[in-house]
Write a protein that binds this DNA or RNA. Structure first.
Length: 953
RNA sequence: UGGCGCGUAGCUCAGUGGGAGAGCACUACCUUGACACGGUAGGGGUCGUAGGUUCAAUCCCUAUCGCGCCAACCA
């Protein structure tokens, strides 16, 4: 087998600073061309498989912040697992998005010309086949936009496995599922009340209707009461009896088939068995009694319109009422509306419909309209077009959900599927336990056409392929159902249809169940629940083991970003300005569980600065590693540590200088906590730990700590270079899932890179490749843990910080080095300073630090005294010519104030007997020890104040 | 109506039953040989309010206010 070499990255000189646009695109190409994203259908022996299916974005989609967040989180998980050596699959794809896509193309053709009636062209003018061709064409031309944008973000998706919900394979899965569910009696066709969008002209599922508060009116309308024979019923006072009902939709009265009152409502007791007359149409309808009616609302009487209201429909069934369909599918009233036929019942927001207006005028004329109130009520809006969706009786296909829901509920109850954060399980159960049948047919053309055929006798034949004759009567005059399936029907199959189901593929065996489903909580019902139901039913196993639900990205005001609101922050603009890595890191850092993300550009900029910081830390390495003398020869050649710098260091960890031991020790803690955080999906915690380590430990302290030793000639320099190199490797690997581009770019510049491979590469006969993205994710090396070095560097930090505080508070120029003398009675402390005097001087910018014995001290010299408790040392700085006594007094007073506050706080605690008695003993003695140190420090500072004040006199 | 979440520095957000943290912004000093996209020092919060549990509460419990989300059959 010939082994193909990898396509190497074009060499690039390292720029002065972090400029992401210089390299992001070419790095992505480098990864993709070399097949770095590809998973293997079969894992190697002993190798774990890890898989995530992308929540397929709409083909019509444009990358928004929600996509950016979800894909960043998924990419972090995927890259982390891939680096852990697992056979990792992240499968890309897009969703055909029925209504959305159809609408886009309909708008397009409407602009193109006029139809035969002179109106803009519609899909009906083109015909089904032609229209579908147009959509496919649109899809070929525009459907890659979103995937290109995902690439820009750095998403390491296995593009060779990209799927589309209407591609051949997935369409095959859809038909298979439909037919099997039909055969199992879990899909049926029936006439039921559904939501209808008069603008989209299709049925909608319950979920696709958004309940929205709208200001409107409550119209009170009087219905005359008659008896069986049609004669008017009189009140006791002799007047005509009537019932007043309140409605928000007066036009529906045309379809009334009863008036309902509460059975125990005494006001209406005399009217039992009587009838009401619907105004305008004069229909006689029964007065019924039902406990559903709320006596407190309005007059306590309710008009019942079974054809156009979900509750009324239930009432209608219970009381066997007539169903009168007065609202047509086209947005106008039907023949059943009599004289009002053809009037429009749809209206733009804020306006009254033609039908309603006419009916109100007529009601007023007849004197039936007795009162009008302002009233805010909730109307259902079509999720796609915002039109008011009307409940309507219609013949549609439904999925019988109860049977499917049961195992899906159990899967979560038993913990076979775990929601993260767990809080969402409650939401899931709540919905699943009250779930209603799912209306899956849509009166659209773009989608999976329902595999049901009708013969001229009206028989139904459901089949995987076009049948030749009717199953029942063998008629050959067959026509396929014109409707298509709800887009979510095909999405529900995504975890297995994408892997080749119903074929028993190797990929399916390897990657089902998926490891994680990462998505937004807003589609738990639309998608997550349905995937679980379908997965349990068809695969007999959960579709995924974990559901990780991320927060919602909102704008700076905390409002939901949406196209209609026009408050969308375009991630591509952010990437263009700041780079993909800063955006990713920001989203990761803000993805705390249980809180919405208000995106702040300031923070993205902050992470840009972070990337730049990292960039410069690598630049510093190169500067020293490649240092040359005047003739251009390397200052000191550093040999390649054949088995890696880490191995080299491990061999002689006991002889490393404390700076090196310290940073290696700290790195182990970071490795442990980052892995632990990722395990718990706490990407924000992992990001925080890495940011703080890189900036505040590695850059702020380590680099400063080794600036002197790295200049030395000889073994110390080599050991520093190796340590630096090793820690840099660790940082870049740890950070890679979060900031893939900059870490790869920087890693490529480093010496001693080792090529690596994957199962997929091996099987494809590809050579190992030099890339950071496939290097092993760091695991802790306990041997590098050194508490002693941590103590040493910790002590140095304390002293340096005290001296810096002295300098800062006294406004001593950073360039002015001064002499510090110290006194101590502890030989160990003395030795400590002698050992680390160079570092201390360098970090605190001192000219010198030297011991002074008490008898050598000049009693007339005015000194600042800085007491350090551990090690027990007093640092002394001659003030003359350095600082003004008043300034220093102020600093010391401030310090004493702080100490006093601390001491009284501790005293308050220690003086309480209950504390001594009940608090843990370790805490009590710890507090006592602290008090002792603080008092000692204070005594010294007070003496200092005494001396300073004497001087002022 | 029910369920849930949030309320911590000017802003955006971490966090914890034992003296409140970061980034940005702010003040002062520093263009120091990685980095001014930087460094050092500093200012700034009674952790929404009121009770309770506890030796100890920003954290746990209860109530309350404010904001937001979700699910609902009040026409």
């Amino acid at each position: 087998m010939t082994v193909k070499a990898f396509i190497s990255m074009p060499p690039r000189p390292q720029g002065k600073s972090y400029e992401p646009f210089q390299f992001e695109m070419s790095i992505y190409r480098f990864w993709e061309e070399n097949g770095c994203f590809e998973a293997s259908d079969e894992s190697a022996p002993g190798q774990k498989a890890y898989s995530i299916m992308i929540p397929p974005p709409n083909v019509t989609g444009v990358l928004h912040m929600g996509h950016a967040l979800t894909n960043t989180i998924q990419d972090i998980l995927i890259r982390w697992h891939r680096m852990k050596g697992e056979n990792t699959l992240w499968l890309p794809g897009t969703d055909h998005a029925g209504i959305a896509t159809q609408m886009v193309v309909e708008k397009q053709i409407a602009k193109e010309g006029k139809g035969p009636t002179g109106k803009p062209l519609t899909r009906h003018d083109l015909g089904r086949d032609e229209f579908l061709k147009r959509i496919w064409k649109w899809k070929e031309e525009n459907g890659t936009q979103i995937t290109e944008q995902l690439k820009r973000l750095g998403s390491s998706l296995d593009w060779k496995r990209e799927r589309f919900t209407m591609d051949e394979g997935l369409s095959h899965s859809v038909r298979e599922v439909f037919v099997r569910l039909y055969e199992d009696g879990l899909i049926y066709r029936g006439e039921r009340i559904i939501n209808w969008c008069p603008r989209c002209q299709t049925a909608l599922s319950d979920l696709e209707v958004i309940p929205t508060d709208r200001k409107g009116n409550l119209w009170h309308i009087a219905y005359v009461i008659v008896d069986e024979a049609g004669d008017r019923v009189k009140n006791p006072d002799g007047s005509d009896a009537s019932v007043v009902i309140a409605t928000t939709r007066p036009e529906t009265l045309l379809g009334d088939s009863a008036i309902a009152v509460h059975p125990e409502d005494e006001r209406y007791a005399p009217l039992k068995g009587k009838f009401a007359v619907v105004p305008l149409v004069g229909r006689k309808i029964p007065l019924i009694q039902d406990e559903y009616v709320d006596r407190e609302f309005g007059s306590g009487a309710l008009k019942v319109t079974p054809a156009h209201d979900f509750n009324d429909s239930e009432l209608g069934k219970r009381h066997n009422l007539e169903i009168i369909q007065v609202m047509g599918k086209d947005g106008t009233l039907t023949e059943a509306a009599g004289p009002y036929n053809w009037l429009k019942y749809v209206a733009p927001q804020g306006k009254m419909s033609e039908a309603r207006e006419k009916i109100l005028v007529d009601l007023t004329e007849q004197g039936a309209l007795v009162n009008i109130e302002d009233h805010t009520n909730r109307v259902g809006l079509c999720q796609r077009c915002d039109a008011v969706a009307e409940p309507m009786i219609s013949k549609q296909w439904f999925v019988k959900i109860e049977t499917l829901a049961k195992p899906a509920i159990e899967a979560v109850e038993t913990g076979r599927i775990e929601f993260v954060p767990k809080i969402w399980e409650k939401t899931y159960f709540e919905w699943m336990r009250n779930i209603r049948d799912w209306c899956i047919s849509r009166q659209l053309w773009w989608g999976h056409q329902i595999p049901a055929w009708y013969c001229d006798q009206g028989h139904v034949t459901v089949s995987r392929t076009a049948p030749e004759k009717c199953n029942e009567c063998s008629s050959v005059k067959l026509e396929q159902d014109e409707d298509v399936l709800d887009t979510w029907f095909s999405s529900a199959l995504w975890p297995f249809s994408t892997l080749g189901w119903p074929e028993k593929t190797k990929a399916l065996e390897t990657f089902y169940p998926n490891s994680v489903m990462e998505t937004g909580f807003d589609i738990i019902f639309f998608w997550v629940a349905r995937m679980i139901m379908m997965g349990m039913h068809f695969m007999g196993d959960v579709p995924f083991k974990k559901v990780f639900l991320h927060a919602m990205v909102r704008d700076e005001k905390g409002e939901k970003m949406s196209k209609t609101r026009g408050n969308v922050i375009d991630p591509l603009n952010v990437i263009g300005e700041q780079g993909a890595d800063p955006l990713r890191f920001c989203l990761a850092a803000m993805a705390g569980q249980g809180r919405d993300i208000k995106l702040s550009m300031d923070r993205v900029e902050g992470y840009h600065a972070f990337a730049n910081k990292l960039w410069n830390a690598v630049k510093f390495f190169h500067m020293h590693f490649e240092e040359q003398d005047a003739e251009g020869t390397p200052r000191l050649p550093i040999p390649d540590p054949e088995k890696g710098a880490g191995h080299w260091l491990m061999q002689r960890d006991y002889e490393l200088i404390p700076q090196n031991q310290w940073i290696l020790s700290q790195l182990q803690d970071v490795v442990v906590s980052v892995n632990a955080a990722l395990e718990k999906f706490e990407v924000n915690e992992a990001a925080r730990i890495l940011h703080d380590f890189v900036w505040h430990e590695f850059c702020d302290w380590y680099i400063e700590l080794i600036k002197l030793p790295i200049m030395e000639d000889g073994p110390i320099r080599i050991q520093v270079i190796y340590t630096y190199r090793h820690v840099l490797e660790g940082i870049l690997r740890l950070l890679h899932p979060f900031m893939p581009y900059v870490t790869e770019e920087l890693w490529q510049t480093l010496p001693w890179k080792k090529p690596v491979t994957t199962t997929a590469r091996e099987k494809a006969g590809l050579a190992p490749i030099q890339t950071l993205m496939l290097q092993a994710y760091p695991t802790a090396l306990q041997q590098f843990k050194s508490l002693e070095a941590e103590r040493t560097i910790g002590t140095i930090k304390v002293m340096v910080e005290a001296l810096r505080n002295f300098r800062g508070e006294n406004n001593i120029s950073a360039r002015l080095g001064f002499l510090v003398r110290y006194t101590t009675q502890s030989p160990a402390s003395d030795a400590f300073i002698r050992m680390h005097d160079e570092i201390i001087c360098h970090l605190a910018k001192l000219s010198e630090i030297r011991k002074i014995e008490p008898h050598e001290m000049d009693p007339n010299e005015i000194e600042a005294v800085i007491p350090i408790s551990s090690p027990p040392i007093e640092l002394r700085i001659a003030l003359k010519g350095l600082v003004n006594v008043e300034e220093e007094s102020k600093r010391v007073v401030k310090e004493i104030d702080r100490l006093n506050a601390d001491i009284s706080f501790i005293d308050a605690k220690l003086s309480k007997e209950s504390f001594i008695a009940k608090a843990p003993q370790t805490l009590v003695s710890q507090e006592k020890g602290r008090r002792f140190d603080l008092i000692k420090k204070r005594t010294e500072l007070e003496a200092q104040i005494q001396r300073l004040s004497k001087l002022k006199d």
